[in-house]
Nucleic acid binder design. Sequence first.
DNA 1: GATGAATGAGGGTTCATTCAT
DNA 2: TATGAATGAACCCTCATTCAT
Lengths: 204, 204, 204, 204
Amino acid sequence: MNQAIAQSKTNKQKRNKLDKRQAVLDAALTLFVENGFHGTSTASIAKHAGVATGTLFHHFATKDAILTELFVTIKTRFASEITSKAALNGDFEHDANALWQQAIDWALANPLQQAFFLHFSLSSEIPSNTRNMAMHDILGFLVDMLKQGQQQGELCQYPIELMLENCHGQYLAAIRFFTDNPQLGIDPNHRNASFQLFWRAIKA
Amino acid sequence: MNQAIAQSKTNKQKRNKLDKRQAVLDAALTLFVENGFHGTSTASIAKHAGVATGTLFHHFATKDAILTELFVTIKTRFASEITSKAALNGDFEHDANALWQQAIDWALANPLQQAFFLHFSLSSEIPSNTRNMAMHDILGFLVDMLKQGQQQGELCQYPIELMLENCHGQYLAAIRFFTDNPQLGIDPNHRNASFQLFWRAIKA
Amino acid sequence: MNQAIAQSKTNKQKRNKLDKRQAVLDAALTLFVENGFHGTSTASIAKHAGVATGTLFHHFATKDAILTELFVTIKTRFASEITSKAALNGDFEHDANALWQQAIDWALANPLQQAFFLHFSLSSEIPSNTRNMAMHDILGFLVDMLKQGQQQGELCQYPIELMLENCHGQYLAAIRFFTDNPQLGIDPNHRNASFQLFWRAIKA
Amino acid sequence: MNQAIAQSKTNKQKRNKLDKRQAVLDAALTLFVENGFHGTSTASIAKHAGVATGTLFHHFATKDAILTELFVTIKTRFASEITSKAALNGDFEHDANALWQQAIDWALANPLQQAFFLHFSLSSEIPSNTRNMAMHDILGFLVDMLKQGQQQGELCQYPIELMLENCHGQYLAAIRFFTDNPQLGIDPNHRNASFQLFWRAIKA
DNA sequence: GATGAATGAGGGTTCATTCAT
DNA sequence: TATGAATGAACCCTCATTCAT
């Protein structure tokens, strides 16, 4: 029972520690989206998070490190969520559509993360190596899908790198549209149209 | 002869004045592309331009004003150049292709301006009103073309705002690809593929 | 046997306790010599010593206290070692030479302590009262020797305080030279010359 | 006459500019001596000098740069002053004494600079390359004198580097003594004794 | 005794902008 | 018009020290 108490204490400690760390991340996410990276001071992040500036730098070596961690975390959560939730059945167009709609849903369900994504995916405010790494990880499964689609004769045979960049551009355009017009996010017409534009461009 | 000399002096003075103003813009363009907006100090712009910091602020009220002027100037020059150079003949697909290829050519011919464009057209480093204004002006003729194309039955009938965003996204993707792979800019295969992706998405 | 185990545990605990304290001192010595007092953070000392920052402050009230303890410890060890090892025989020049050579030997045998000594005996990075106290203790036996030498007619009759300062200066100069040129530390020529300069200045 | 006025204006401008720069150096000299390098903040220097913190960094790239400039300036002024004021006549002992006494006089006449000198000549608070450079420049004429003295048979024949270090050490000891006991600076007894100790050590 | 997360004042430095010349 | 010295708030980050566990 003493052990149980000790264990509990340890857990609470860890919980508190992680809480502060998470509070910093949460505050940074909000402020970065609102004011941009350079427009947000570490002091304001700390204040927003309810911690001292020293605490911020106890958990993150650098202001940049906060941005990087946000970037990687959001990207990872996004990728795992849409691939796990999409109901794939092996039919190429069906699967492409399933993933596409899940990605749109994710954007609508996580407006803050989505705004962060649009803000920083292409921004020069984050180190390009971080951006490239994250982009490559996100697009990794896309590359596989495109190659497979071309082999199966389901997709047009244009150069893969060009198609990849095109898909990325169309994806960003779609989520920008639905972020700007959230009320149309539940309209089947627009949802379907967004996929059709994408699909018509790349299908065989 | 005295008059001639005076005239000459006046001209040279005006020339010098404009030279300094232009020198600031040129230096700012280079440095903004290289280091970003926040990464470039007004002092470094002035030094690069060969003028004093005070001079810089005689010609531009604000550091932001330099960015805005660069943005508007480049956007205007871009729009006028591609519309004037494209040989249109009334056939919809032909004209769309002509404009598309001109836009790609412009990007390849003006790498600095193009880099600036990619850097800042979506960046949060510039005031959103500046970005929106510039974007709207650029996309103005696109809206007209899209509406006309739908009326003539040449384009698919998806919601116009969604298509507009999609076109913009595909355009940025294309120039990003050709900027990253300049050697492919003269390859007819890739040039044609980039247009085909775009065209297949939106054609009827 | 249980007692033996308990005893063993207690000893080990005490050993551990002293170990940690000593580990802090060792780490501080190395880092102070390497980076100076202000250039060394308590965090880095703790890390180097393999203890937590809190542990460091259980053993030393203050960062300054670490420096002071190092200073006093090294000074004491130095003084006791050279006086105990020097073979004195009552002849004044012989005894002076014996002490001088022992002091040089100590410097060569304890390079870290010696570097610490040169770094901090005149540095303003340590509180002046600490420095003065330590200096006075070291020079104490020197004062006695000088006075005795003058009474015996072995030394010149210049004001004692001036001679004391002069001896101190020559001593620091010698160990600085041999620290900078360690290979000459075993050269009898240089060793003897260093003493002769010192002795010629003060002998009768 | 307009020209005269313009010239006057320009001079006043330059005067003002140099005044602020000099004010920073003066304030830094006082504060560095009083609190040490690390104990003095750039903010306090600026406040003491009556300028804004930005002004300080307009004139000096770095806090270190202030220290370096002080070091070089004081060293140069010291060297030029004692060599120009000393009345040399070619007799070796006479010339050595003349320089020695001038050096002591300089210390007594410039107590702040002297305190700075004692504080930082051997301190690890300044970059070692700066210290070495300055030391070498100061000791340059000493090296020449020592070599010449040995060739003429006026000085003892111990290794030159060791003698150099010894002279430096004795010099610092002497000025430390007279700085600590300023009332003895006009006592011929102590003045002569300080030279005799030095001279007896190195003479043939 | 040992831990290490938390603190927040203070550090050196930057920078857009002003203004007297 | 052109200059560049001057400004001072704001920046990111460090650090000796504390204290709950």
